[in-house]
């Protein structure tokens, strides 16, 4: 083999193509940084105290805030968790500890499919399920929509983390006279708890930004929404409505709301990763 192998043309292709892949990565990263940077700049400059403490001001007036939307989002997420987390946990336990054969396969596959249902379709579903019978939009309907959307991820991540618990721990429990269910609740779940919590927090962060299913379930509200059966405002819907409005004051509010929403999500995501790291550290001494 001569020293000039591979031929020059192939060497050039090599360098050019490898450089191109690097360029692609750079491009994606710069888009990411631009988005985050722009949001940070626009959002932070539009923030003030009133944003958190006041409800929206009438059109044309400056000032006002989105306190009702922040409260609305928190209420929606609480309700969604109350629905999605228990079902996801139970289903995850079932898949990892009890189900076998076709039953496990069917549930797993259906869960993955449900996870892929476009959020706007989920909105339609909950509209026909909750809003039509009740004849009006409500926090309840929005919470149900987000709750159903939470189930697939809560279920699959719970299953994955439970599965990762070694068989030796389960046998250790059984050998001490614990029943299967006692082993699950006192050994397997505690051993996987950090992972499960992380999965659920990321799941909450994911649905917190959902907008489409809320448009026709929670709808929106210019004022505070008492109780659970009235339409409610929420951060994502506020961002949408303000962004497509013609008023500059509202655009500023949209940026501020986007900034608050994304910061919230990033904080949740970072905290949950810390929890996972702490769990790993604990279980390895």
């Amino acid at each position: 083999m001569s020293a000039s192998y591979p031929p020059l043309s192939r060497k050039i292709t090599n360098v050019v193509m490898l450089a191109l892949t690097g360029f692609c990565t750079l491009l994606v990263l710069s888009v990411l940084l631009t988005i985050l940077g722009y949001l940070l700049w626009k959002g932070a400059s539009s923030l003030n105290i009133a944003f958190f403490t006041k409800i929206p001001a009438p059109v044309g007036q400056s000032g006002g805030g989105v306190e009702n939307a922040i409260v609305g989002t928190l209420k929606l997420l609480a309700l969604a968790s109350a629905i999605g987390v228990p079902i996801g946990l139970l289903g995850g336990i079932y898949l990892s500890e009890f189900a076998g054969g076709w039953s496990a396969f069917t549930i797993r596959y259906t869960t993955d499919l449900l996870n892929g249902v476009p959020s706007v379709v989920m909105g339609i579903f909950v509209y026909t399920l909750v809003v039509l019978p009740m004849h009006h939009f409500s926090t309840l309907a929005g919470g149900v929509a987000l709750g159903i959307m939470m189930i697939p991820i809560a279920l699959r991540s719970t299953e994955d983390f439970l599965r990762a618990v070694p068989r030796s721990l389960r046998e250790g429990g059984l050998a001490l006279g614990a029943s299967k269910s006692e082993t699950i609740f006192t050994i397997v779940i505690p051993a996987a708890i950090y992972g499960i919590i992380t999965g659920i927090m990321l799941d909450i962060a994911r649905v917190a930004g959902e907008t489409a299913p809320l448009l026709f379930t929670a709808f929106g509200n210019l004022y505070n929404s008492p109780g659970w059966l009235q339409p409610t405002s929420s951060l994502p819907v506020v961002i949408y409505n303000y962004a497509i409005s013609p008023y500059d004051v509202w655009h500023k509010q949209a940026w501020a709301a986007g900034f608050v929403l994304l910061s919230g999500l990033l904080v949740i995501s970072i905290i949950s990763r810390l929890i996972l790291a702490r769990g790993k550290k604990l279980s390895h001494g």
Partner: peptide, 20 residues
């Protein structure tokens, strides 16, 4: 079986302390 295993204890090949 759960009662039996309290009378007949077992230690496994790999040390398997619970993460507690």
């Amino acid at each position: 079986a759960t009662r039996l295993r309290r009378v007949v204890g077992m230690v496994f090949q790999k040390p398997s302390p619970f993460p507690k």
